[in-house]
């Protein structure tokens, strides 16, 4: 059997991830996280009328929850079911940073945590910042042309 035939044989027979089921779970759990965010927003709004500040506080609260759940070893169990539901909201990013930090503690704070904390989230930070720069340049040019 040639390599190409074997790869085709394997991909035809191997069980695929249940995409529809994963999507439904991601929708429900991701939606629940966003609803929780909205509930926290409403709650904070009682004490603070500045919308921007309140929005930042909501993000911070969700990040804190995700990091605490990662630290006590629960987040990965939820994510195994939720998939994109926990990955896409800000909770996924928080988990990527916190899990790297927990994992590399044994190599010390400099060469372990310091060097490896962004090993998973690094690409998001790099390309997120990069696309921000490009967006800024385009925005600037557009504002020069159309005022």
């Amino acid at each position: 059997m040639k390599n190409k035939e074997y790869v085709e044989y394997v991909s035809a027979r191997s069980k695929k991830s249940p995409i529809l089921m994963n999507a439904v779970r991601a929708f429900l759990i991701g939606g629940a996280i966003c609803s929780l965010g909205q509930a926290i927003f409403e709650f904070y709004s009682v004490f603070n009328s500045d919308i921007k500040e309140t929005q930042s506080l909501v993000s911070l609260t969700l990040i804190a929850i995700a990091i605490i759940l990662t630290g006590i070893g629960i987040f990965d169990n939820i994510a195994r079911v939720a998939g994109a539901g926990t990955l896409v909201p800000i909770t996924g990013f928080a988990n990527a940073v916190a899990s790297s930090a927990v994992d590399t503690k044994s190599e010390g704070f400099v060469m372990g945590v310091g060097a490896k904390i962004f090993s998973i989230s690094g690409p998001v930070i790099l390309f997120g910042t990069f696309s921000g720069v490009i967006y800024g340049v385009i925005y600037y040019i557009c504002s020069l042309i159309w005022g």
Partner: peptide, 13 residues
């Protein structure tokens, strides 16, 4: 693979 507490899904294989 990934850090132990990283939240991801595994493939059936």
């Amino acid at each position: 693979r990934y850090p132990l507490e990283y939240g991801g899904q595994r493939a059936p294989t």
